[in-house]
Amino acid sequence: MTRFLITRILSAVPVLLVVSLVTFLLIWLVPGDISAELGGTDATPEELEAIRRRLGLDRPLWERALAWYGDLFRGDLGYSYLLQRPVLDAVLERLPVTLSLAGLALVLATVMGLMLGILAAVRHNTLADQGAMVTALIGLSIPDFWFGIVLIILFGVWLGWLPTGGFVALTDDPLGWARSMTLPAMTLALTQMGVIARMTRSSMLDVLGQDYVRTARAKGMPRGTVVFRHALRNAMVPIVTVVGVLTGILLSGAVVIETVFSLPGVGRLIVGAIQRRDFPIIQGGLLVTACVFVFVNIIVDMLYGWFDPRVRDGR
């Protein structure tokens, strides 16, 4: 297990390298820098040049990149030009928002997706099956940000049950956190729910048709037990896999949801940094989120082994 972990963690290094290289490419692409914003409307070209020199923006990008990697080795992600604070602090402060959103969305999507999927598989070829699958398909097909706007109007304005936006920290007020996160998480969960429901159904159907499950049924094991002990456990393998993949998609999705629901998350932090050319935040923010992505995928790999005895024993 330890060796497996070490291998996995080492294999994360090239991923992070690619992410940081693509980020530099992106910085190289965007014209303009932050000097105009810092210099004010009246700044002369000389003053702008002085600001660039002070921030090192006059050096060629490869030099800046080397310096950045050097700092990274010392555990320093740099300093935000605009927020006037260390990048790591700024990103870590936002991470709870995005993680709350992504985490809750995953929970919602998994619970609802599993329920729909199991229902469909167990009642295979019935109206319930079709109903569940149509629901899943609709979930897959609706643009989620659009769904979010509709939810705001419905639950925020017309019914007035839930806040229309904003974030409450879990540590401050668990109830407020849940209320503030419900609509955004539902929005983000919509598509993923559809994916998980469809996957659960098909892998459950595969497993339910297999010999050992039939044997278990034949031995008189209650239906519910068979479904949950044997079938579902095996069906977890692709589900866990999809959770890992979804983590990557979630940040992209979170950018939009954070905008619609006015949430101060990492997505909006990075978008703001791109729009204002606050390069250290772009670099640091993307690296930290890539780390989260890699970390979740390592966990996913471990769960994968745990749920699938063949993988576990094969190691």
């Binding site: 693509v22 980020t23 965007v30 939009v256 997505g267 729009q275």
Partner: peptide, 14 residues
Amino acid sequence: DGLMAFPGVLLAIA
């Protein structure tokens, strides 16, 4: 793998 860890929306914004 690296590209998968990179949010496409942010690439589009850049």
